[in-house]
Amino acid sequence: MDSKSSLFFIALGASLWGIIGIFVNQLYEIGFTPIQVVAIRVTTAFFFLVIYVLSKNRHLFKIKLTDSWYFVGTVIISIVLFNFCLFSAMEEASISIAFILLYTAPAFVTVFSWLFFKEALTGRKISALVITLIGCSFVIGVLPNVSASISLYGFILGLGSGLFYALYSIFGKAALQHYDSLTVTLYTFLFASVAILPFSGLAANGHLFSSVSVWGFIIGLGFFSTMLPFILYTKGLQYVESSRASIIATIEPVVASLVGFLVFNETLTIWQYAGMILVLSSVILVQESKNKYEQQLLEEVKA
């Protein structure tokens, strides 16, 4: 595979993550709650990943039973809460705002790496954090008009998605030292399904699964916006350095904003668009300062 094909795979994978709002909002319209949509996503993604691993390399199923704690931690603290915050933010605010707040994750990773791994907090990183803060202020409408355009709850949910996404990269570090990223993702979705299904209330909404269109949205969520983009992205990473890949991946919130505008008639102010540019700029700035392993850790474990 040449470099151009790899870049295309990465861009396509990020774009497929960006269209997730189409499937999530449609499932909301049908009658599913955010926690139920999370359960649907992790369960269907696990199903498709099992099929993929069976066809690719069955040895990737093997883990030590004593290593299960790796996945329990990442599931409870990160995957379930990350998806719940992201999907709830999309319902509370908008797809565009939810995704740009999700992209505060690199800033959280920078802070956590400084606190827990004693990594240097360089001038470039500090600049990125300041730019992120200003960009978020523009996105939520606090600056320059000093009148928030989204609720405090929506803002907390958006930041929560970035926080828990960042925590996944931190807690997933131990697992990735012992297992392939595909194995980590597979078992993360397995444990997530086991953890969330009993509390999701999906059984009480069994009648909602009777429509063919519902299954179309479920497949779209689990396959096209979860499993497939992960495969495409990690495939592209084999031939492109992670720094370039992470920058290309910033197309995700751009696609999400286009989906919000074209499909759901969402509109943003000029200051909110400026805030989006600032947040994306900070992502590029902070990623440029990371080494290859750290960047791959942040991006490869996304689900």
Rank of each mutant, 00 (worst) to 15 (best):
K4D: 06
I131R: 01
N205K: 15
S246G: 14
T122W: 07
S15N: 08
G21L: 06
E29T: 12
F32I: 05
A39I: 01
F61I: 04
P144F: 07
V50G: 02
I131A: 03
S127I: 03
Q296N: 09
T183D: 07
L133A: 15
G222H: 04
V214F: 02
V214R: 00
G216N: 08
S15C: 09
S151H: 10
F261S: 05
F84Q: 01
S78H: 03
A148N: 11
A303L: 08
T132D: 08
K302Q: 07
T250L: 12
N205L: 05
L176Y: 03
S15D: 04
A166I: 11
A303S: 10
F261K: 03
I76M: 13
L298A: 14
F199Y: 10
I20S: 14
L133K: 00
I170H: 04
A107H: 03
Q272G: 09
K173F: 11
F164H: 11
I150Q: 05
Q272C: 09
G206S: 13
W69M: 14
N291F: 13
W17G: 06
C136S: 12
T185C: 01
T74K: 06
P34G: 07
S113I: 03
I63D: 01
A192E: 05
P229M: 07
F116C: 04
I284E: 09
A203V: 10
Q296A: 14
S149R: 09
L280H: 01
Q26A: 08
G216M: 06
S55G: 10
V139T: 09
Y187Q: 06
G275N: 01
V50N: 05
P253N: 10
S243N: 09
V240P: 05
I131V: 14
F99P: 05
I76R: 09
D2N: 15
T66C: 08
F155L: 11
A274Y: 00
G216F: 15
E91S: 14
I63W: 00
F261I: 10
L129K: 03
I40Q: 02
I30L: 04
F217T: 00
L16M: 15
Y168A: 13
C85I: 00
T234G: 10
K125A: 02
G141D: 12
K173V: 05
Y28F: 15
T269V: 11
Y239P: 02
V75I: 10
I134M: 09
I231R: 13
R244F: 10
Q26S: 12
L280E: 00
L163K: 03
R124F: 12
W17V: 11
V38D: 06
L232Q: 05
S5N: 09
I20Q: 14
I97H: 07
L182V: 13
L237Y: 01
R41P: 00
S6I: 03
M276C: 14
L202W: 01
S246D: 07
I131W: 00
F23A: 10
G275L: 03
I196A: 00
I284L: 15
G135R: 01
K235H: 14
I35F: 13
L102M: 11
A256G: 13
M1H: 04
F48Q: 05
Q238E: 15
S55I: 12
R58N: 10
L190T: 01
I51M: 13
E299A: 05
I134N: 08
L176Q: 13
